[in-house]
C-alpha cells in the first residue's frame, strides 16, 4: 500500500517528506513501546504510535521503519521533525485513535508484522 493511500484512509496530515508519499508500505505495527517495535518490526513498515518524543524517530531508524504516523492528533516538536527529515523517515499525523487507525488500515488490506507462526 502506498503511503499516500494510508494518508487518505487516515485523513492524515504530512509533517515532513511529502515527496516520499509514493513509498510502498508492506506492513504495519501499532505500539507505544519502543522495545516492542524493536523486537517485532520488519523493514518497509508503517509505525503507528501515540508517542512523539525523538526516541520514536531513533527507534524507527534502528528498526528501518519506512514511515511514522502519530495518532490522536499528536505532533512532535521541531527537533524531532528535523531528525526525521535527516533520517529520511516521513512523518504523518492523524486525528483518529490508534485503534481506529489499525482497524481502517487492516480492513483495507495492510497486513500486520510480527505474527507468530
Amino acid at each position: 500500500m502506498k503511503l499516500i493511500r494510508i494518508k487518505e484512509l487516515l485523513k492524515a496530515d504530512v509533517l515532513c517528506l511529502e515527496e516520499c508519499l509514493d513509498n510502498e508500505i508492506k506492513i504495519a505495527c501499532g505500539s507505544d513501546l519502543m522495545s516492542d517495535v524493536l523486537a517485532f518490526i520488519k523493514p518497509n513498515a508503517l509505525l503507528l504510535t501515540g508517542l512523539t518524543n525523538s526516541q520514536v524517530v531513533r527507534t524507527a531508524e534502528m528498526a528501518e521503519v519506512s514511515a511514522i504516523c502519530f495518532v490522536r492528533g499528536k505532533t512532535p516538536d521541531t527537533n524531532t521533525i528535523e531528525l526525521a527529515k535527516e533520517r529520511k523517515i516521513p512523518l504523518l499525523t492523524t486525528k483518529y485513535s490508534m485503534y481506529e487507525c489499525c482497524g481502517r488500515l487492516y480492513q483495507n488490506g495492510l497486513p500486520a508484522c510480527g505474527i507468530p507462526k
Partner: peptide
Amino acid sequence: ELGFGAGMGLCNIKK
C-alpha cells in the same frame, strides 16, 4: 511514559 522500561530491553538484546 516515554515508551521504554517495559522490561523488554534485555530480552531484545538477547534476541
